[in-house]
Amino acid sequence: MKYTTLSNTQIKVSKVCLGTMTWGEQNSESEGFEQMNYALDAGVNFFDTAELYPIPKNPRTQGATETYIGNWFKKTGNRDKVVLASKVAGPPEYNPHKIRTGGFSKSAIEDALHTSLKRLQTDYIDLYQLHWPDRPSNYFGKRGYRTSPDNQWKDTIRETLEHLKDFVDQGKIRYIGLSNDVPWSVMRFLEESKYHGLPRISTIQNPYNLLNRTYEVGLAEISLRENVGLLPYSPLAFGRLTDKFLNGQDTSGSRIDLYPEMRRYNKDNALKATAQYYALAKENNMSLATMSLAFLHQQDFVCSTIIGATQLEQLKENIASIDTQLDKEVIDQINKIHESIPNPAP
């Protein structure tokens, strides 16, 4: 395994982060235990979860993922071996159910945090992330920002940081991050922390993969200049960037069809680009998954790549990708494909 530090901290984290969002829907508790055991043995010391998980979202199972992790901590005593990240859910635009009202108010964050701590059977969370903005924006599959009456919003960023500071001071949160956010918001959070002595965001968790490199447009420079590392999720485009869906195979029951918002990876240009990436991977004696993940591992603005899998064998291959180093010729060919079909699935 390769390691780095969580951006703007002294915490050592693996360059591969274990994603957990399928545990409780597509994966059982015993399968989650198996994945955590394997990942830790392979040197992965960074786990990511959220109060909203599992996904697909379901009010009956919401919170089960954190419960599984907490039960594993209790059984194994491995809490001190893991850098643990979780998230507080934002407004319920993407929820079929409301976890709570209040957005990122003090009472809402307090309820979310204390409930997560109880499920996780721990006294603190190393990285606590705001799952998405509390305002309408062009995140999560939206190409461009559009003004509308719904865009009216009171700027609550300073207040949110003040709420989070209280829990940092109490020792319940060590560091904070954002997720599904945009450049304007990242800079506003940095501005408020700089001028008002509030906690500074360490990371941003956004989608980033060969079919969606929109992070490079505005956020990558912020990551590098402001030391806010990317934790890319969907690094394999919900399975599209693997060998298993390349010949017209049935995708029913797979994550790419279970989540309607991810069907953008089924669009014609996404399929066309995937075919070209697959051919390039085979020319260089790699699986498409390995090449796709290796590309992300080598980006200097990436802190740790979040890898999730429903099958243990998939997880093994994905973790092993950390040992693959792409040479300049392969990277140049990847960029050539990207230039011809840029961001087909933002």
Rank of each mutant, 00 (worst) to 15 (best):
L293H: 02
K98D: 02
Y38H: 14
K106M: 06
L288A: 07
L40K: 14
D41G: 15
A42H: 15
N212F: 12
V44G: 13
D268T: 08
E191G: 04
D323W: 05
L40Q: 13
N95L: 06
L117E: 08
K267M: 10
D323I: 01
R188K: 14
G218C: 10
R240A: 15
M36V: 05
E93A: 02
K118R: 14
V83G: 12
I222S: 14
R60G: 01
I99S: 02
P346R: 06
D250P: 11
F295H: 13
S14L: 00
S185C: 00
G177K: 14
D111Q: 09
I334C: 05
S179P: 03
P59G: 02
N227H: 15
N247F: 03
L117N: 11
P54H: 05
E339Y: 01
N335F: 05
R79C: 03
P91G: 04
L190D: 10
Q249T: 01
F245N: 04
L127W: 08
T242K: 12
K118D: 09
Q152L: 02
I256K: 13
S202K: 09
R264W: 12
D111G: 00
D150G: 05
H97S: 07
P207M: 14
S30Y: 09
Q62F: 02
S7W: 10
S148R: 05
L258P: 03
G63E: 02
Q333N: 13
T310V: 04
A220Q: 08
D80L: 02
G253A: 03
E29L: 03
E317F: 01
V16K: 02
Y68G: 06
T310G: 08
I69M: 07
L211M: 10
S340A: 14
T4C: 06
A39K: 10
T115D: 07
N151V: 00
F47N: 08
S86A: 09
N8T: 09
M286H: 13
Y145H: 07
P91Q: 05
M291N: 09
R200K: 13
G103T: 04
G70T: 06
D323S: 10
Y3P: 11
I176M: 10
E191W: 13
K81W: 11
S304N: 10
T290C: 01
L246V: 00
R255N: 10
F140R: 12
N343G: 08
K142L: 07
K165L: 08
F167R: 11
N8W: 00
K106Q: 12
G77N: 04
L120C: 06
L280F: 09
N343P: 06
N247T: 01
I11A: 11
I55V: 13
Q26W: 00
L84H: 11
T115I: 00
T324Y: 15
C17P: 12
K154Y: 01
A220D: 09
P96M: 02
A279M: 07
R158K: 14
F47R: 10
R264I: 13
Y278D: 15
